[in-house]
Amino acid sequence: MFELTGKTALVTGATGGLGAQIARALHNQGAKVVLSGTREAVLNDLAAELGEGAFVAACNLSDAAEVDGLIAKAEAAAGSPLDILVANAGITKDGLILRMKDEDWEAVIKVNLESYFRLSRAAVKGMMKRRHGRIIGITSVVGVMGNPGQTNYAASKAGMIGFSKALAQEVASRNITVNCIAPGFIASPMTDVLNEQQRDGILSKIPAGALGEGTDIAAAAVYLASNEAGYVTGQTLHVNGGMVMI
């Protein structure tokens, strides 16, 4: 089950904790993985850790031209066409709306949402020809429930969900699925900066009583990337310890 041998995957934001976990899990199931991010040294280290079948294709997701070229770059690096796109990269530029600068809004929408559109557009072209593909957007529980101070981030993540539903309908007949994974609170550098009070506040709202781990998200990504998940499309898989039930 969930065997990915012979498949090629691209994971953006692979320099982050979550992206690295997703890349590891896909690789572990036999997929070739292309690691993308801005910090090439970190990507190279991860590629070295994974060994055979791991490749690096650096990309700055706030540069539209670079994003448009990333799928081709990844396929060239792996030497095979792309089967699985995991759009995991994301940034936050938090602030209450009255203090939110235009740049903060634009940067978050550009990196989180616009790059998802650009990568999907480029990926779908080849996937349609090959009659197979898996597109997975890593969104957030915040895109569904909102969070003060994150109007830009919540909008970008909710946007990914809507985008995925529309694209899923466009390409379903070509055996391409488009789904999102919405992590709840996952232990990461982003949650490490929370103070104890904030942390307790969050935990009190999670029935499972713990933060999630990157591997919880990675397992969901493996499932959605697999042949077995071929009948699942346009969905958002919530992995949040029961914090929000939709």
Binding site: K125, V171, S173
Partner: peptide
């Protein structure tokens, strides 16, 4: 052909 085929043909 379906609508997606047409788009692909045009491309």
């Amino acid at each position: 052909a379906d609508s997606l085929d047409i788009v692909e043909l045009v491309m």
